[in-house]
């Protein structure tokens, strides 16, 4: 075979490289239990869009050593719930071999990572403290932060589900920022900012220039007209204290 062994794989018809992915892990605590799939189905119904066709890794740690699971059956029943089991982790040699025979390889060691629900669709309620339309994500171990670096134009709505929102540009009048956590605007805030949407009353809003149409935390709001002139266009933080909305300049 002529040609150098150093032919770059980039020139070939494929490219092989490493990748890392965040995926859901389903720990099989008691897979033989009667209520297993019923309860799993209930979980799926809480956020159907989130779970549909979700790739799944099965955690086999703690499974009793003697009984081997029918992985092929498990895989197809999980498929009925919408999940795509694509691999396993833990559980020891015998379980992993059985799983492999059903087309579920042992995944290389992974770390626990956060898994976030996608941001809720457009309709968000300004002040009635209703939760976001999409059902809550599966207990993320960590809060996420959504960072937006371009100006948020009039009419645009950004929702940081399950965490904070940071904007490093201006927010135009007519734009809406929504977050379950805090909102930070490193620029002029001229639109609306609603923090603490899922009820976290400790959430705050920070901005470099307060010109907002409305600010709200956990459902309590203040409109532009009621912002004191002294702090208008100043760097301000907004928070709840003993049930009152406080607007403090820095």
């Amino acid at each position: 075979m002529t040609g150098s062994d150093n032919v770059s794989e980039r020139d070939g018809p494929f490219q092989l490289r490493g990748g890392s992915f965040t995926m859901m892990v389903l720990k099989l605590v008691d897979p033989a239990s009667d209520g297993f799939f019923a309860r799993l189905g209930d979980k799926v119904r809480q956020a159907p869009n989130f779970f549909r066709n979700a790739p799944l890794v099965l955690d086999l740690d703690g499974l009793p050593g003697n009984e081997l699971l029918d992985f092929a059956d498990l895989k197809s029943r999980l498929r009925e719930c919408g999940f795509l089991a694509i691999g396993v982790q833990g559980g020891g040699h015998r379980h992993q071999e059985a799983a492999l025979r059903a087309g579920l390889p042992a995944m290389p060691a992974g770390r626990a990572a956060r898994v976030d629900a996608p941001p809720a669709p457009a309709a968000a309620r300004p002040a009635a403290a209703a939760p976001p339309p999409e059902a809550p994500p599966p207990e993320p171990p960590q809060r996420s932060t959504l960072i937006v670096s371009e100006p948020v134009r009039s009419g645009r709505q950004i929702y940081a589900a399950g965490g904070d929102l940071v904007v490093t540009a201006m927010v135009s009048a007519g734009a809406e920022l929504l977050a379950d956590g805090n909102i930070h605007v490193y620029g002029a805030l001229r639109g609306r900012a609603l923090a603490g949407l899922s009820g976290d009353t400790g959430s705050r809003i920070f901005c470099l220039s307060l010109e907002a149409e409305m600010v709200s935390i956990g459902g309590l709001y203040r409109v532009n007209e009621d912002i004191p002139k002294a702090i208008y266009k100043k760097p301000v933080q907004v928070y709840l204290k003993e049930g009152y909305l406080c607007l403090d300049p820095f």
Partner: peptide, 9 residues
């Protein structure tokens, strides 16, 4: 109408 600073709903 000059009420843009009072819009909530």
């Amino acid at each position: 109408m000059g009420c843009e600073r009072r819009v909530v709903f």
